[in-house]
């Protein structure tokens, strides 16, 4: 991959070589991501167009741009913008394109980033489109695995809501490019869709699934936990039962691999007990930080700046 990628919309647009290029760029920028400021993107303006709440994605993009010496333009509240007057996203994108050098978009409709890329005259970075894609989350997940474990010959268990979770579909897709051995762990109501499993196998992933978390704990390099949303369960009793069965506590670590790591895209609710936070296996806060070097790497790439 070179510096000519314009938009970051879906992980399906990327080859393994392109992903490796981004991860390597993030390695180069990681020291700067931790502290300091450079002039790599001085004079460049990044517009943050968030139609939905966000803490980590919005603030890490902001941090990334500031560390690179650029400036940030925020939409502010929807109520104070023309969105409440009924302006289309297409028009908003055309206008914001003239104010900025790149746009990060989070929008509740699936496919909004792809559409925005059609109307924008500057690069669009998808910061999450409804239940669709969140490619910068996937890239920071891959970066975490690369830094804290290993991407080659990886054994990973992905746990939680695998039916609706937007991040896990993209992550599983990207891991299949690395030939990972993936075990999906979920209650039967939230299983990974058959069609996606078929696609993953066709791409080279080794895929298996179970409802029992204990079956996989001692054999994986990475335990990737996701949130199970209450609204997916019509019956609250059923929800409580499922959440209890997939909750990670210190008791789970007796037989795990010494270098096994636990990841979570955050925010967590009940999935990981706070007693796990100080365990040598916990990596979810470091994972959150890795969003900064990854987003710095992406900003330099879409803006065509060599590092």
């Amino acid at each position: 991959m070179t510096n000519d990628r314009r938009h970051i919309v879906s992980m399906k647009d990327f080859t393994r070589d392109e992903i490796d290029f981004i991860l390597e760029r993030a390695v180069t920028l990681e020291t700067l991501a931790r502290s300091g400021r450079s002039d790599i993107l001085t004079g460049k303006i990044l517009a943050l167009l968030f139609y939905e709440p966000s803490t980590r994605t919005r603030m890490s993009f902001e941090t990334a741009m500031l560390r690179l010496g650029g400036s940030v333009l925020n939409l502010g509240s929807k109520e104070a913008s023309s969105i409440v007057k009924g302006e289309t996203l297409a028009d908003t994108i055309r206008v914001i394109s003239t104010y900025s050098d790149a746009i990060v978009l989070r929008h509740p409709s699936e496919g909004s980033a792809r559409m925005a890329a059609e109307f924008a005259s500057v690069p669009i970075i998808n910061g999450g489109d409804g239940a669709g894609h969140h490619p910068t989350q996937t890239l920071l997940d891959l970066y975490t695995i690369k830094k804290e474990s290993h991407l080659d010959n990886l054994d990973i268990a992905i746990v939680g809501d695998l039916k609706y979770g937007r991040t896990v579909h993209s992550l599983a897709y990207a891991l299949s490019l690395y030939g990972a051995n993936i075990t999906f762990v979920s209650p039967h109501q939230l299983k990974m869709p058959e069609q996606i499993k078929g696609d993953l196998k066709a791409m080279g992933a080794r895929v298996s699934e179970t409802e029992n978390l204990d079956e996989v704990l001692d054999s994986v390099d990475v335990l990737y936990i996701t949130r199970i949303q209450k609204e997916r369960f019509p019956d609250p009793t059923e929800y409580n039962k499922v959440v209890g069965a997939y909750k990670i506590t210190g008791e789970h670590f007796d037989s795990v691999r010494e270098d096994m790591i636990i990841m979570h895209p955050l925010p967590r609710v009940y999935e990981i007990d706070s007693s796990v936070d100080n365990s040598p296996h916990a990596r979810y806060f470091e994972q959150s930080f890795y969003g900064v070097p990854i987003r710095m790497a992406l900003l330099t790439i879409v803006l065509g700046v060599d590092v």
């Binding site: 297409a90 409709s109 699936e110 496919g111 559409m115």
Partner: peptide, 29 residues
């Protein structure tokens, strides 16, 4: 929840795969 089903000025577009026929929305996939 696809953007092509809103009031945005876009028309639906699908990639066509054969055997069996599968249509993939280019917006929401």
């Amino acid at each position: 929840n696809c953007i092509s089903n809103t009031n945005e000025p876009v028309t639906s577009k699908f990639e066509v795969k054969k055997d069996p026929i599968r249509l993939r929305c280019i917006y929401c996939e």
